[in-house]
Every structure is written in C-alpha cells, then in structure tokens.
Design a protein around this nucleic acid. Structure first.
Lengths: 369, 369
DNA sequence: TTGTATGCGTTATCAG
DNA sequence: CTGATAACGCATACAA
C-alpha cells in the first residue's frame, strides 16, 4: 500500500466510497457491486460452482468495474510465489534463447513471472543462487535446461525439497524428474539416411564432451542406421572434441586436417562444433561441401548465416520450452506422475552437404555420356 | 495456503506450537522469539531506527529460526508486484541476450523476478501484452530495449501510467524517459581512425533502416572523423540496407558487387548486416580483407566465429543491462530526475580489416627496396 | 449453492 | 524508540 493510498483509505474509513475512479476495484468491490459475497466471486474466478444467476451478475460487475485480480494477494493466499525459476548454464546460448521463447509463450498467458539463473554466468560453475531459491522457496517450480552431471546435486536438492521440476534436454541420465527431450537416436539415423542417399560411405563422427549422453545417442543412431544400410562406421573415424564449443571444433579440424584419415562427410554432435570446424576449413581452403560434407545437430538459425549454410538436425526448441512450462504448471497444480515427453528432430538440408566428389563426377560423366 | 498447512493451523488454533519444524517462521514468530513487537522486526528488516538492544535480539532470533521474509506478502503490503517487465522486439536477438545477462546480474541480488515480452514473437509487431501489463500494473517497472518509432505508443502509455521506465539503446529520439545508450558518434569516429590508420581512403558506409538514429549517428561520427583527417566520405558510397537483418546485408552485397562503385572498406551499421554481406562475398570469391575490409557495430561474440572474424565496435551490453536495471530500481524507490547514461563503445580488431591491397603492395615494395 | 469468518506475512500509522 | 493494529486482496473451511 502506497502512502497516498493508505491516507485515502483512512479518511474514507467510515463513509463508503461511491465510485472513486482512483482506487482499483478488488474482489470485495465486485462482490458488493454484484450483490453477492466475496467467496462467491472467488469461486467464480476459480471456476468453481456458482449459480448461473450469480455468475451473470458477477461477470457484468467485473466488466463494469474493470476488475483484475491481484496476483500478489492470490499468491500470498495460495502460499505461492507466482514465479518459476529457469536454469541453464549460460543464458547466452542461442539454443536456450529459443527455449526461452517457448517458455515466454506459455508464461504470458498465466500472469507468472520468471527468474533466470545462469550457473555459469561468471565463467565458473556456481549454482548457489539456485540452492538459495530452493531453500527459500523463492520459486514455485524449476525448469532446468541441458542439465549435465555436475547438476546432480541441484536436481537432488530440488527433488528432496519437493519442488516441482522439469528437465529439458538433459545431457545425462536423470530419473525421478519430469523430462522433456529429443529423440537423439532417431536424429542420428536421419542423418545417416541423408548422407547415404547422397552417396557417402566414408562418414566420420565428431562428438561433444566424453560423457555426453546426447552425443552418444546421436552416434548410436548414426551407426545403427548405417549398419541397417550395410555400411559401417569406421571406429577410427569416431572422434571426440571434448566439449560443445566452437573452439573445440576448430581444434579438432586442425588435428584432423593434419592427420591422414580421410572422410567424405563429417557429422558433428552439434552446430557449434561444426561451425568451428568450418572456420578452419576455410582457412585451409578446403571446399565444403565439395571436398567434405558437414552436418550438425540442433538447428540453430545462426547456421543459416554461415557460408556454406549448415545442414543440421533441428530440435523444436520453442515447442520444447512451452511443453516443459506447461508440464511444470500441471505438476505445480497437482503433483501427478513422472512423465517423459520426447520430441522428434527435423532434418534441415542447407548448403553444407552434397554428393561426394567422386560420385558427383561419375554422375556428371554418366549424365553427359 | 495449501490444504495441509491449513489443516495444521486449524488443529493448532488453541495450543500454541512450540517449535514445529514444519511451519516456516514469519515475522510474528521472530517477534515473539525476540520478545519484541512485529513492527519492531519490520523496522529492523527495513533498516529503520531500532535500539541496539532490540537489534541484537532480533538478529539472533532471525538467525536461529532461519527466518526469510516473504516477498509475496511484502509486495502485497507495499502494493508492488516484485517483478519488472523487460521488453524487446525479439528475445532471440543475441544483442538482447547479453543485455539480459546484465539484468540477470542485478536481479539476482534483489528477489525480484522478471517478465519477458517480445513485441515481435510471432513474426508481426504486437505490443498488446505490454499494454496489458501497463494497464493492469502487472510489473513495477519497464526496461525497454532498442525501442524504435513504432514503440512510441507503448512508451507514451507507460509514461502516462506513471510506470517507471528505462529505455536501453533506443533507436529513436525519445525524451521524458530514463535513458541508457551508447556513444554512437564516438564509435563511428573510432572506426574512421582505425581504417585511416590502415591506409583506407575509399570508404563506404552501409546503414540500417532509413529512419534509424543509431545508423545516422554512426555515419555522422565516421564522416566527421574522416573530415577531421582531411578525407571525405563520398556520398555515392553511403548506402542504406533498409533493415538490420543479415539478409538485407546480403541483398546489399549483390547490388553492390553488380554495380560499378568501388571501395576498399565498407563500414556496416551493425554486425548482422556485415555478416550477411560477407556470406555473399564468399559466394563471389571476394577476398576479405584482401580485396575489401569490413567493419561492423555491436560487438556480438558471434562475429568471432565468422571467417574472417569480424572487426567491430562493441557495445558493453551487459554493463548497460545492469545499469538500466539499477536505474530502474532507483526510480521505483523514488521517482527522481530524468537521467541519461551514455556508454562508450570499444573497437575490437579481428580479421576482417587490413591495409588496402594497393597500399599493402606498395609497402611490400617499399620494404623490399 | 452461498455467506461468514479467518488467515496468508508484511508494512505503515499512530499513540505511547 | 516501541507496540498494537488496521490494512493489502484473495482463498477456503464451515455453517447455513
């Protein structure tokens, strides 16, 4: 209550105000205006039983008064905070940005706000803010994006505190939590199909961090589909970049080009690695996709700005964000069962993949003969 | 109040609970524990006058009980929402993402959450959510990023509603509002210095949207410094891409390369345009910076991943974010004067600029002779 | 189906 | 400097 408001209240404590345009209507105003009790209005607001007669009166009263219920008061009464926590290692990640758009979609319809926490805001991993949130229950629930092994304590604490939590695209095997993820194996298989269709047989895979489940699954999918097509992924052509960062992809490029192993296509575990690789390829004047086809995973729009634009398997990040958010609200309202939602990924063919040179040449020959 | 809590309360309505680990302590608990009145505890919490004796007792009580005040209740009592609104055309913008990090820094210390609104979330401009926020006062204040002409109504409404508002990097002349912006003219001048030092004389400028103030100021700075160095910016070499998007830069590239005008360096009004241009340059096998030097504005980290990595004038986006947020809180607490904070931009020399070919050659000649 | 009464945790007023 | 207490706006158990 602001000072002005309080003064107003006090001076009018005896004489009921008729309709001062000043003061915002509350549930009590509505009730008296409609000639019913506040509890009836409250029930109306919460879609509980109320007679059609009362319903109509209340509706018009609300309309006339331009009433809006206070979420602050509602939260206080409900023992909620009206706010969810969204956690990610870095909010600068374009993948996360898309996820956020989905969350935003969902939140805008619910008068709920959000708190953002980057566990790696300042360069080093520091989840303490989140621990505070959990302990002080400053949020009604948590959406944790791309959680990895190091986030285990975080998740354990949230579960222990009985705080509704949804994990999105966890890169580690978590259970006991609501899950929203992508079909990484299926995506790997789709990439295999794409490359095989183009005529590639010497395919390499460059993974992310050693322990990454996503990376593993994508590789599994790739390998599986290749086998199904009677091709095998040469294990000498399976690499690990050790991280998800573009710089790791660049580093890999340098060792790859300096080595003697050859492939006609390289599948990267994500777009970022692929982009780092391509930068070095440019420096070395390796033609893509002429000499080498490149595929990434994630489907970041940024990939379309590269030259050549990156072919990739896209996650429906925005949909995942809104799905996670919806699920979180469900769980907040009523605890319910554990649930896992899996989204398919989608192949986006851009410019970084083409038929391998040899094949292209033979085809040209065949065409001209 | 959750059902469980209510049951607990009711069953204990007569007999005071000794210290049930269940129930969270509130200001009343603290007061009785410290042997003072609630109002004294409240004063303590809000750093108002309270005797040292009481102060000590309260402090230990709070410590022992692990008390944390409820922001929901506080907001209700204060008539606040405990939440600020952050508005941008698209939350996908990497520039905005950096700004958000700064806001995040500031928010994490204040138990305030945020609501995000993208006015162009679904492809077309739609500020209605924000109007709702303002009318229903669902936020305590607004940070509006990169507002442009079309946001005038929004800003006018916020001002009319007396809602504390801070504009960050507005691309239009706004007044009557708190402002946080960059020194675009100074940045333009810095680019001029950089290019002149490298030996460029045939410099072109490719601007953003026609009515963009930022674009205009950057050009002014560039032109001014060039004049100061006794060079002039050929007005035939001043272009407008008509938008800030990479695609506009690509489009400009096509017409530029198809035309007959020549320059040894092009300054783009932002990084995105420059990146679109460079993509086409690659396609046409124009060597950068060999045949053409390129400079952008904004300093997005993404520019470092391009090949060649983009030379650019960087905005301190994160600092601007936290500054805007701090200022907003100041204004929320006490209205105060209108204020404008201007941040300098910083030149990041990467790979897209070099001495012009002719000069490089003559230098080599000079060196070898 | 509705009304009454009470509580949610704080802050601000005003009389000591 | 301190204590009692009335708001803040809403939700719900319970009685009617």
């Amino acid at each position: 209550m602001t000072p002005e408001e309080r003064r107003l209240t006090l001076s009018l404590v005896e004489s009921r105000v008729p309709s001062p345009t000043q003061r915002k209507p509350n549930i009590r105003t509505v009730a008296s205006h409609a000639g019913v009790a506040v509890s009836t209005v409250s029930r109306f607001l919460n879609r509980n039983y109320v007679s059609t007669a009362a319903r109509a009166k209340i509706a018009t009263a609300i309309e006339e008064l331009g009433f809006r219920r206070s979420s602050a008061a509602r939260n206080l009464s409900l023992g909620r905070r009206g706010c969810i926590g969204v956690i990610v290692d870095s909010s600068q990640d374009p993948w996360f940005t898309r996820l956020l758009a989905g969350i935003e979609d969902e939140l805008s319809t619910r008068d709920t706000s959000l708190m953002l926490a980057s566990t790696e805001l300042s360069g080093k991993y520091d989840p303490n803010i989140v621990f505070e949130w959990i302990r002080e229950r400053r949020v009604d629930g948590l959406v944790i994006a791309k959680s990895e092994r190091r986030d285990r304590r975080l998740i354990a604490e949230a579960v222990a505190a009985d705080l509704p939590t949804v994990l999105v695209a966890p890169d580690e095997a978590f259970n006991q939590v609501q899950l929203v993820r992508c079909d990484n194996r299926g995506a790997g298989a789709a990439v295999a199909k794409h490359l095989v269709t183009l005529g590639h047989t010497a395919i390499a895979f460059a993974g992310g961090p050693e322990h990454s489940i996503d990376s593993k699954h994508r590789l599994q999918g790739l390998r599986g589909e290749l086998q199904a097509q009677n091709l095998r992924l040469d294990s000498a052509l399976v690499f690990s970049c050790g991280s998800w960062e573009a710089e790791a992809g660049a580093e890999f490029a340098r060792t790859f080009f300096d080595g003697s192993l050859r492939a006609t296509a390289i599948v990267f575990a994500n777009d970022s690695l692929a982009s780092g690789f391509m930068r070095v390829a440019h420096q070395r004047r390796i033609s893509i996709p002429g000499a080498l086809s490149i595929v990434g995973f994630d489907g970041l729009p940024e990939g379309a700005l590269l030259w050549p634009a990156l072919t990739t398997m896209a996650q429906p990040m925005r949909e995942m964000g809104s799905a996670a958010c919806r699920r979180l609200f469900e769980v907040i309202e009523s605890p319910g069962q554990l649930q896992t939602m899996e989204f398919p990924m989608r192949l986006i063919v851009r410019e970084s993949t083409a038929a391998p040179k040899a094949l292209a040449r033979s085809r040209t020959t065949a065409g001209s003969s």
